[in-house]
């Protein structure tokens, strides 16, 4: 069933891709092929392979139960927050929080997770910023 849904999704994706390809405005100075042809070929391959996937599905993959999916969703939310808050909080604090969350969700105890977070953050800060001179996001405290 997963593959059938995936295949249908692929066909829709190919359709959307083809529609946006047709919407490309062509410049009056164009080569013989133009900017639309190759994207349209790709859309065709995408649609064809999606149709085959939908018609001849593989055995069902092992999907995790709802709890584990929620786990991944939570991790994604934390990562998105991390990306957004990085310039506000500064590298060290944001990274320590995000790494601690991931460590906690992977099964570390609260203290262990905190240590992982701080260790990762400070370790990366020392190696990448102080030693290698990479400029990282600066927060209100300058680190």
């Amino acid at each position: 069933m997963s593959d059938r849904i995936f295949g249908v999704f692929g066909i829709l994706l190919a359709l959307g891709f083809a529609i946006s390809a047709f919407a490309i405005e062509e410049s009056f100075l164009s080569d013989a092929v133009g900017p639309k042809a190759f994207p349209l070929i790709i859309a065709a391959v995408l649609a064809l392979s999606s149709a085959v996937i939908a018609l001849r599905p593989d055995p069902e993959p092992h999907w995790p139960d709802f709890g584990r999916i929620a786990e991944i969703a939570a991790a994604v939310v934390v990562m998105v927050l991390y990306a957004q808050l990085l310039p506000e909080l500064g590298f060290v604090i944001a990274t320590a929080l995000a790494a601690a969350f991931l460590g906690w969700r992977l099964g570390s105890g609260p203290l262990g997770a905190l240590m992982t977070g701080i260790g990762t953050s400070v370790g990366i800060y020392v190696i990448f910023h102080l030693v290698l001179g990479l400029s990282l996001a600066r927060g209100p405290f300058g680190f």
């Binding site: 994604v76 990562m79 998105v80 991390y82 990306a83 957004q84 990085l86 310039p87 590298f91 990274t95 995000a98 790494a99 601690a100 991931l102 460590g103 992977l106 099964g107 570390s108 262990g112 992982t116 977070g117 990762t120 953050s121 370790g123 990366i124 990448f128 990479l134 400029s135 990282l136 996001a137």
Partner: peptide
Amino acid sequence: RVLMPIVAMVSFVGIYGISGSSFDLMVMI
């Protein structure tokens, strides 16, 4: 549980270090 947070954070640092943009981090996620 120790290794994977490091992998994730090094990935973020690396991409942020190249471009310095949160947009690229979102694309990476």
